[in-house]
Amino acid sequence: MTTSSAQDRADLLHKLGLDQQNKGPIGRVITTGNVEQAKEREDGTMHIRLRINPDEIAWDPAVIVMPHGGDLEIEIFNDDLNTHCALFPSNGDRKFIWLVNHSRGRAKLNLDGPGYYWFSSPTGNDEGRGLTGAIVVLGDVPPEARLDRPEQPRP
């Protein structure tokens, strides 16, 4: 069985129980959740809200998209009835925060990209159950870092 559209994909994920806890596999297959683009402020910094909903053991959104490299501020809400945490990629050192039940915190990240990075809740097997997300940085490297050659074909 294959999918041919985004809705088909969502329907099949749900039908097979891949986007829920303890339906298809034991956990929820990573990054099967929502996708959201970070909002950019006038000064170029970006921000987004990130939640852990009750009994989903997943990030919402599961895929955060930054329009370009730079600073990202995340407001994190643990609405779950269990304790989790978060480990985010950032230049300098990874950022860690402990998130007891019904807590709210913040993280400031710097990512240069382009490319994508993982973040997770590194406790127990939160990562395997579904609390693994991705931060995607769009854009290109600075012009001075690009090769001196004609434009090349891409996939």
Partner: peptide, 17 residues
């Protein structure tokens, strides 16, 4: 409404080493 517990700001992971 129950107020959220303030988890503060994420810190460098190395600070926990």
């Amino acid at each position: 409404t129950v107020e959220y517990v303030d988890a503060g700001e994420a810190i460098d992971q190395g600070d926990l080493s």
